[in-house]
């Protein structure tokens, strides 16, 4: 049994994957799907529906299109499960079907690494020698609850949506859906180093957005 401080750190390092099918092994689920078990398929759909819509929305311009892509993904699963070889996890395999569909369906913007000016909340906050001149204020102890409140969560979703394409996809897969960096690199066909840069930029901007949220709360 790990001490709680260690498990808390591990959680922070690798966000917990919330896909429920993790409780059933991939191979068991695949067998049931191949055998035509409707309950297994219904379970698969309800487990993956939300993460897939969220992921699809990082590629396509509207919710309607995202839902269509997800529907096509599940049909792809039905047709392709007989050929699933278990070389990647079932989840990565399903996500890859979605990414392929989403890319052919119509990109919302070209895939590129944004090199433009990033709104990272850090401009003008350091002296010429790189020391803080405007250091971050302490966040309240109940910061997780405050930032998870529904009205804030809606703004977080919008903030993620405003990120450049690959930053949006990387942070959604890594921090929202809890995939590993190796899985994300494979899915998005980007290098490990590139993935880390994109993740750093996205996290920096989202931290700045949370900072603004908490500052507004303090003023009101």
């Amino acid at each position: 049994m790990l001490p709680s401080a260690v498990t808390a750190t591990l959680r922070a390092l690798q966000p917990v994957c919330r896909v429920r099918s993790q409780t059933v092994s991939d191979s068991e689920l695949v067998e049931r799907l191949r055998a035509g078990d409707e309950h297994a398929f219904a379970e698969l759909v309800s487990t993956y529906q939300q993460p897939l819509v969220r992921l699809a929305l990082t590629f396509v311009p509207s919710r309607a299109v995202a839902e269509e892509v997800v529907q096509e993904t599940f049909i792809g699963v039905i047709r392709g499960i007989g050929r699933f070889e278990g070389r990647s996890s079932l989840k990565t395999w399903i996500y890859r079907i979605l990414v392929n569909r989403a890319r052919t369906t119509g990109a919302r913007e070209p895939r590129h690494v944004s090199l433009g000016e990033d709104r990272d909340g850090l401009a003008g906050r350091f002296s010429a020698d790189g020391a803080w001149t405007d250091p971050p204020s302490a966040w309240p102890d109940d910061v997780d609850d405050r930032l998870s409140a529904p009205q804030v969560a809606r703004r977080v979703i919008v903030a993620i949506d405003d990120l450049p394409g690959l930053q949006r996809q990387v942070v959604t897969l890594r921090d929202v859906e809890g995939l590993s960096s190796a899985e994300v690199c494979e899915l998005l066909e980007i290098s490990e180093g590139n993935q880390r840069v994109l993740l750093h930029r996205a996290r920096t901007k989202l931290r700045a957005m949370f900072e603004d949220e908490l500052a507004v709360e303090r003023r009101s």
Partner: peptide, 9 residues
């Protein structure tokens, strides 16, 4: 904290 909150979104 940002990463934790994103994980519970």
């Amino acid at each position: 904290a940002t990463i934790r909150v994103l994980g519970h979104l």
